[in-house]
């Protein structure tokens, strides 16, 4: 199931978003060896500060199993400001009806092979359907997506072949990246749905997710420490600072727990 998190609802889904950043660290930093900045086990860059929308795939237990990040192409986005190597010196496409999708990934640790619901293949298609249907509903006709050649093959294999490419394949750290174009037409959406046998509404309600995710960790610590942690979270000015504040909170809560273990 798919949950869309943006600046308007991210306060309700802080832990989900935190898991998104952790998944990205594992996938792009460790597995794919991209040149990304990882701090506290979370991959966060400057575009996460621009209020993007995150399309998040959750499994039946509401764990994050996939995600992608969307930005408007008329404003600052990765192809115009970071991935310009791909564009080979040409100006980026800017269109109000085109969004850019970056950091598309699924969790290979949690998902299996094959085509059933808990597979890499199904989740990839479901995430794609989530992006395309969210875009379509918003009046967006096209997605430009920065992907690696492996992802490009995955798209082709799952009846979701890009209709075009922009620029050239460029070196990104140890791997290559390219910009593919995908439309959000009914035809494509039904092809992807048919390939993965996805039926019904893929979107889950915000209330359902909120009712089922882990409540914020119980903080077994002194009032002053708890207050301090809360203040750190409140005064965080960026996603990176917020993630660091959450990590500190968890570390302190963990310390308090292990101390209790020793005492017992």
């Amino acid at each position: 199931m798919i949950l869309v998190i943006d600046a308007l609802n991210k306060d309700r889904f802080g832990t989900v978003l935190d898991d998104v950043f952790k998944l990205r660290a594992r996938v792009f930093g460790e597995r794919m060896g991209w040149d990304v900045n990882i701090q506290n086990g979370r991959e966060i860059d400057e575009f996460d500060e621009l209020d993007p929308a995150y399309v998040v795939s959750l499994d039946d237990s509401y764990n994050v199993i996939g995600c992608a990040r969307l930005l408007q192409t008329v404003g600052p986005h990765m192809l115009s400001d970071v991935f310009y190597d791909i564009l080979d010196g040409e100006p980026p496409l800017r269109s109000v009806t085109m969004w850019e999708s970056t950091r598309f990934c699924v969790d290979h640790n949690r998902l299996g092979r094959g085509k059933d619901k808990n597979s890499v293949s199904y989740t990839t298609s479901e995430l794609m359907v989530g992006i395309l249907e969210y875009a379509r509903e918003s009046g967006i006709s096209d997605i430009i997506t920065v992907i690696d050649p492996i992802m490009d093959r995955v798209l082709k294999r799952s009846d979701n072949t890009p209709y075009g490419y922009v620029g050239k394949t460029a070196d990104m750290g140890k791997v290559k990246a390219l910009a593919a174009l995908i439309d959000s037409t009914e035809e494509r959406i039904s092809r992807v749905r048919a390939f993965a046998e996805i039926q019904g509404d893929v979107f889950v309600s915000e209330d359902e997710v909120e009712a089922n995710i882990q409540p914020p960790i119980h903080l077994d610590m002194s009032d002053s420490l708890r207050e301090y942690c809360f203040e750190q979270l409140e005064s965080a000015n960026s996603e990176r600072e917020r993630a660091a504040a959450r990590a500190l909170q968890q570390a302190i809560a963990g310390m308090a727990q292990s101390r209790r273990g020793i005492n017992a």
Partner: peptide
């Protein structure tokens, strides 16, 4: 205020 932070059209129902 709120709508300016979304990337998608914001139906006022959401606000």
């Amino acid at each position: 205020k709120a709508a300016s932070r979304s990337i998608a059209p914001v139906d006022w129902k959401r606000l």
